[in-house]
């Protein structure tokens, strides 16, 4: 296949390490908000309270990460100049702003025991926006010209969503006494299984475009993600009910796996953008051409 001196056709993203960490904290926050409200409605107060605190903490870290990544951090408020439905980042900023504000308010009122009605309202808002918060980052990266992301546009929100659910379960399994953490353990195990299935489906769909998930840094993170998430889920599932140690160790391992998964997706995007073949070959195929018939260049 010919290219211009092997140079990339598209630009690599300019996002820094804050971004994959935000994918992790945003997912954790969103799914924990949902978990908290459902636990509240089912009368599991310890789980509801701790998950709310996890959600609020992750929601507070998230904007710090995002602002720190900006080229002009002092202009972060420009994110709220407009609401643009064509930009998942605009939509996501509003979701995070609303969800984060609501969960922080709810957590504060929970801790101080004041304004019950306001607290319930804030919890409801945070839970309603929690689902979108957990998945939108998948859509955000898919809405680019990066082949490994764009072609996985239907899998990525499910991958990030299931990963978010698993991490919320894992965090609650760590934070909540084990007699109250049954749903959290089931969530951790179930989320991990779904996530690994979605990952397989995504790689199958990507075909040649999925190569980055087996190469360089993305490949390393993908292996790490799989080992840690499955290992952590197995530990939680097998022994989390009886042993506090197993719940904490399994939860920590699973959380590490979830962070690694975001890093893998993040790095795969860079690798996919860097090599012109991932951009050119599928486009030629789309046009009905074979491998480039162009005169060999770059003597």
């Amino acid at each position: 296949m010919s290219s211009y001196y092997g140079r990339p056709v598209i630009k690599e993203p300019v996002w820094q390490p804050e971004i994959p960490w935000y994918f992790f904290t945003g997912g954790l926050a969103g799914a924990s908000s949902v978990l908290s409200l459902v636990a509240r409605l089912r009368g599991n107060e310890p789980l509801a309270r701790r998950s709310l605190y996890v959600a609020a903490a992750a929601d507070l870290v998230s904007p710090v990460l995002l602002i720190s990544d900006l080229g002009r951090p002092e202009r972060f408020l420009n994110m709220f100049r407009v609401f643009k439905v064509t930009s998942p980042m605009s939509v996501g900023s509003w979701i995070l702003g609303i969800s984060g504000g609501a969960s922080a308010t709810a957590a504060l009122l929970e801790a101080t025991g004041r304004l019950k009605v306001v607290k319930y309202a804030a919890e409801a808002v945070s839970a309603l926006t929690g689902g979108p918060l957990a998945v939108y980052t998948g859509t955000l990266v898919a809405d680019t010209a990066v082949p490994v992301w764009h072609e996985a546009r239907h899998e990525l929100p499910f991958l990030f969503g299931s990963g978010a659910v698993a991490s919320a379960g894992a965090a609650a399994a760590v934070a909540v006494p084990r007699e109250h953490a049954g749903p959290a353990r089931r969530l951790a195990v179930g989320g991990t299984i779904v996530e690994n299935v979605v990952m397989q489906a995504m790689e199958k769909r990507l075909g040649m475009l999925g190569e980055p998930y087996h190469q360089e840094e993305a490949g390393t993170y993908a292996k790490l993600a799989k080992a840690c998430s499955l290992g952590g889920a197995a530990l939680i599932g097998a022994a989390g009910r009886r042993s506090r140690f197993a719940a904490v160790a399994g939860g920590a391992l699973l959380l590490a796996g979830e962070a690694a998964l975001r890093w893998s997706v993040f790095k795969a995007g860079f690798q996919s953008a860097r090599d012109p073949k991932y951009t050119v070959a599928p486009q030629r195929e789309r046009l009905g051409y074979g491998p480039s018939s162009a005169t060999e260049t770059n003597v």
Binding site: L35, G131, A134, V135, H154, F158, G161, S162, G190, V194
Partner: peptide, 16 residues
């Protein structure tokens, strides 16, 4: 797809 995935997050939590 994102909307369905967000719904699935809620459904998953309920199922737990």
């Amino acid at each position: 797809s994102a909307a369905i995935a967000a719904g699935a997050v809620v459904a998953g939590v309920l199922a737990a």
